[in-house]
Amino acid sequence: MTALAAPASPRAPKRRKSTEGRDAWLLVLPALLPVMLFSVYPLVYGVLLGFTDAEAGLNAETHFNGFDNYTALAGNELFWNSFKIGLIWAFAVTILQFLASLGLALLLNLDLRLRWLARTLALIPWAMPPVIIAIMWQLMLNPNYGPVNRTLASLGLPSSINWLGESAIALPVVIVVGVWAGMPQTTVTLLAGLQSVPAELNEAAAIDGASTWRRFWHVTLPALRPIITAITTLDLIWNFNSFALVFVLTAGGPGGTTMLPSLFAYNEAFRYGNFGYAAAMGNVMVVLIGAFLILYLRAQMRSRNS
């Protein structure tokens, strides 16, 4: 972006920087101020909690205990197992969700009949609270009476699959529900992004005789890139932290095969009252996922700038 902006700027770069720096502050401050007040404090509190032995209890005393939580966590096989499940879940859901949503967004961007209806219907999963989604899917996936198995049966396909009850397939099934639940958000985001791709670019390419596929690959996709980066990053984070859906669907079962790390940390804090230890898990998640994201964002920036 700088590469594009700097040479075209009619003003002297130095002065521009100082006054614009102030303008930037003026514009950003109203957003940052409430945020500082209401999010930095709880976040810092939460992060610091990860270095204490805080426990639930009336008048319970809390002490800093350095890295004790982390040495304990290093040997906590269950946590790392759940971390692994979280990675599989987060990447699978994010990637599938992105591909499915991109396809849908491209379709919804076309001038098709009843587009308004399709666009509205595409939003359905989003309009329902996660708890309702989970209850509904449980019913749909009921092995004996659910519509999913009944539909399969009427098509003559195997229809006695115990979708959520078998440890070998529970995670993939939960992933599909996760994709379903998160699709509207990604679709709307990408659709809005597609609308921001200046039509001229496409028209210019069309005049040049570029094929649909080539235009998509060389014009649309690069223009969408900042939005794709932004939404996949957030999707990954949210999926890694997702909680309510799986909590109601399987509560981590069967046999712990869908125990996501946020469920695990939640149990540690809310059920066993080990706030300090749970916050340490949160910190580990921040560090590991954060490191990955920085690498990902760096790579995206670099390829965008080149």
């Binding site: 269950l78 440890s167 981590g252 079962g253 069967p254 046999g255 712990g256 149990n267 059920r271």
Partner: peptide, 10 residues
Amino acid sequence: DQYATPALQQ
């Protein structure tokens, strides 16, 4: 949560 339920489920 961590042992009895998964083990019994299995």
